[in-house]
Amino acid sequence: MIDKNTSDLLAKASLATASPALAKRAIPLVDLTSLSGSETEAEIAALCTRALEHGVAAVCIYPAFLPQARPLLQGSAVRLAAVANFPDGSDDIARAADEAAAAVADGADEVDVVAPVQAIMEGDVGIVGELVEAVRLAAGPQTTLKLILETGILADPDRITAAARAAVMAGVDFLKTSTGKVPVGATPEAAAVMMRVCEEAGLRVGFKASGGIRTADDAARYLHLGDALLGAERISARTFRFGASSLLDDLVRVAAGGASSGTASGY
């Protein structure tokens, strides 16, 4: 259940709009993402070039493109992320761990792994901790591990909270809202629930909004929540990310003094 204080905060966040200063603040928090499944090598090269040009937090791609992307980003501050157990969220923990290990071997600094969604829906929250522990062991302690909870499917705030807490206890680094492959991606309501868990954890666990984050105004609403729940002074790429493909274009436009388009599409 969303309490009244959170409801009031969500109402205020819904009114937030982007300014050039906010857009400039958000750009370094972006995980520039390409997960359409139909990418070409030329498109991956262009993605990495854009990431370097604008100084985003990371590039997030399918594991098959890691050998190409790694040398393109080598020596920069832009991190390289790959997905695992994606997008289905299988309960095959061994497969997820193997995918994570292979991604790290191919140069991934970060792994975004999907939680076993159907198992959680059936009441098996414990499997979240099992997955995180197995993937952590396979990927190694230096790899940033983000767990995708697919909150649009989990839906219930108590269920999201239970799954998020299980992940935190197992040693996850980030809680992430969505794969972007289901009808309901990130929502401010789910984000607030997850940020509360991050707050409980003393912000040793970060938050990543993904799935339908398309415009600078969208980013403004999530940053408004982050500032209120986590503290503006504590938000950085180490604690707060946006996973998106089209968001960066809008942020760059607004940072330069333009208006948020409100019409972008993508992850």
Rank of each mutant, 00 (worst) to 15 (best):
R70E: 12
V128A: 05
G257W: 07
V114L: 02
R241A: 07
R204E: 15
T6F: 03
T40K: 06
L47N: 06
C198D: 12
L15M: 10
A58I: 02
A201I: 08
V132Y: 10
A102I: 06
A84G: 12
P183M: 10
A23R: 12
G211M: 07
A51P: 06
A164C: 13
L29Q: 14
I27F: 04
G123I: 03
S210W: 02
A191I: 10
C48A: 15
G140E: 10
V117N: 03
A138L: 07
R159H: 03
F240S: 12
G262Y: 11
C60H: 02
A255F: 01
F242Y: 15
R241L: 08
G152M: 11
A190L: 09
T263L: 12
A192F: 07
K176C: 13
A11Y: 07
A192E: 03
A134N: 07
G75Y: 11
A45Y: 01
A170V: 10
S36T: 13
A16I: 11
T161H: 10
L9R: 13
A190Y: 08
T179C: 01
G107D: 03
A77W: 02
S260I: 09
E99Q: 15
A220T: 09
A13K: 08
E150N: 09
D112M: 04
L247F: 07
I2D: 09
A16D: 07
V184F: 08
L147Q: 06
A191Q: 03
P63E: 08
L251Q: 11
A264P: 01
G37I: 00
V172M: 10
D112Y: 05
A216D: 00
Q68M: 09
V197P: 03
Q74N: 13
A23Q: 12
E122V: 01
L248N: 10
I160L: 13
F207N: 07
A57T: 06
A26E: 02
G75I: 07
T144R: 14
K208S: 08
D109K: 04
K4C: 00
R136M: 05
S34C: 04
